[in-house]
Computed example of a mutant assay.
Amino acid sequence: MAFRRRTKSYPLFSQEFVIHNHADIGFCLVLCVLVGLMFEVTAKTAFLFILPQYNVSMPTADSETMHYHYGPKDLVTILFYIFITIILHAVVQEYILDKISKRLHLSKVKHSKFNESGQLVVFHLSSVIWCFYVVVTEGYLTNPRSLWEDYPHVYLPFQVKFFYLCQLAYWLHALPELYFQKVRKEEIPRQLQYICLYLAHIAGAYLLNLSRLGLILLLLQYCTESLFHLARLFYFADENNEKLFGAWAAVFGVTRLFILTLTVLAIGFGLARTENQAFEPEKGNFNTLLCRLCVLLLVCAAQAWLMWRFIHSQLRHWRESWNEQSAKRRVPAAPRLPARPIKRESGYHENGVLKAENGTSPRTKKLKSP
């Protein structure tokens, strides 16, 4: 992280130098953009990186409000917030996760999973709070019909567009982080799967002007994922603590049902009954039968794949626990050795003295002199 002491130096622009200083490099680039705001010549260019573009003033009953739509300049803004996310990622890793993992003394495999879950818990919880605030203030929860009414939703409020830009920046930053964090080759395919899945759904909702529906689905998904990664963190702290996994398993199935129901309701029934059903990309209208079927197929296939993986992992977990219990039952008890018979001398004891059978004490053997 920036301004911290280095115990080891690496050759400039080498692979190890970039890996260990990628957050500092990102911090310098962000600082250059912020410095550009101070000068009139570069201020307009710097604002392209920081603020969302394509603003349009919309008249209302009282005054005018500023709304936004998407365009190619959004890529510049996303790039800037990718560097912001890389810096925040390094801050959480060094000042929170590394200090906790040192106390837990985890193995390499558990250490990698602990870092992954720690980063995702911070992101998911902050996204849940932010997304819940947006859907409440915009009235999407109190009025479910707004998810498909007045489609296409081309003009977005500032907080909705900024939320989508930050979401895309985070999941795009996760791709180079696989290299910076030196993720094991066995873990890369699994992480690439859910990164690409999130990017496809978020970018699809943003580009197809389904931002309202996408916010609700992200809120449901992030609540479930935050519970899962919290359960993993508690499990790494204490392996006997598995109660949160049971709660996550119950919430996971309910979330899949809610996502499928809401998607079919909004796209399959809501958009199908609207009057404006034409393919007009220049106006942001994609409300055709083919587009609706493609979106429904993508969402249903993703939920079915997640449910299949969940059932497969649960069955494997139950099989492993059953094998452990059966192995413990098959272990035979240690055989007891027969007690050795105590050799007693003839006679009996009386007041601690051995007596012969006729009542006299036995003779003591004379020791031979050396």
Rank of each mutant, 00 (worst) to 15 (best):
F3M: 06
R6N: 05
L12W: 12
F13P: 00
F13I: 13
F13R: 06
Q15L: 14
I19R: 02
H22K: 10
D24Q: 10
C28H: 12
C28L: 15
L29S: 03
L31C: 13
V33F: 04
V35F: 05
M38D: 02
F39I: 13
A43K: 14
A46D: 03
Y54S: 05
E64A: 06
H69A: 05
H69I: 05
K73Q: 11
K73M: 14
K73E: 08
D74K: 02
T77Q: 10
F80A: 05
F83A: 05
I86L: 15
I87R: 12
H89A: 07
V92K: 08
V92I: 15
E94N: 00
I100K: 01
H105R: 15
S107K: 14
K110N: 10
H111D: 12
H111E: 14
K113V: 04
F114S: 00
N115L: 15
E116A: 01
S117F: 01
V122G: 04
Y133F: 13
V134M: 08
V134K: 07
T142Q: 13
T142W: 06
H153W: 01
V154L: 01
F158A: 03
F158C: 03
Q159L: 04
L165S: 02
W171F: 12
L178D: 00
Y179C: 00
V183I: 13
R184A: 04
E187K: 08
L192R: 01
Q193S: 04
C196F: 14
L197D: 01
H201A: 12
L207I: 07
I216V: 11
L219G: 11
Y222L: 13
Y222M: 08
C223M: 14
L227Q: 01
A231V: 02
A231F: 09
N241L: 11
A247S: 06
V254G: 01
L260V: 00
L260Q: 04
I267M: 00
A272S: 14
T274W: 07
Q277V: 07
F279W: 13
E282N: 10
N287C: 07
L298C: 07
V299W: 03
A302D: 10
Q303L: 12
L306W: 08
R309H: 12
Q314C: 08
Q314D: 04
Q314W: 11
S321R: 15
W322P: 01
N323L: 14
P335G: 07
L337V: 11
R340W: 08
R340S: 11
I342M: 09
I342K: 11
G347C: 00
E350N: 03
G352P: 02
G352D: 02
V353D: 02
L354A: 01
N358D: 15
T364L: 00
